[in-house]
């Protein structure tokens, strides 16, 4: 299933909204730079910078990639680590 609108129609409808969101992001980074102290070593600051790389990349599923970037990892052997049995 896809969207009924063309790419041109979507850009026409969303340009100002996306522009505004990007400006908010830019202003938040400026705010961080202007503030006293440094968060350069804060892992969250690193995540935000990595997120910008995801947005800039010419690749699909950016929202899913950002979600995974901001997620803790899934450990397939979690049952063993937590010593949890399962219902059968």
């Amino acid at each position: 299933m896809s969207t009924p609108h063309t790419a041109a129609e979507i850009l026409e409808r969303e340009f100002l909204v996306v522009r505004a969101k990007l400006l908010e992001t830019a202003a938040a980074f400026d705010r961080l730079d202007r503030a006293e102290g440094s968060v350069a070593n804060d892992p969250r600051r690193q995540e935000l910078r990595q997120a910008l790389d995801v947005l800039a990349a010419d690749a699909p599923n950016r929202a899913e990639k950002l979600q995974l970037l901001f997620s803790l990892p899934y450990e397939p052997n979690w049952r063993k680590q937590l010593n949890v049995a399962t219902n059968k």
Binding site: L68, F70, S71, L72, P73, Y74, E75, W78, T86
Partner: peptide, 12 residues
């Protein structure tokens, strides 16, 4: 940040 691993654990 807990959603992805938690959802996968729930599905398991």
């Amino acid at each position: 940040e807990d959603k992805y691993p938690g959802t996968r654990m729930i599905l398991d």
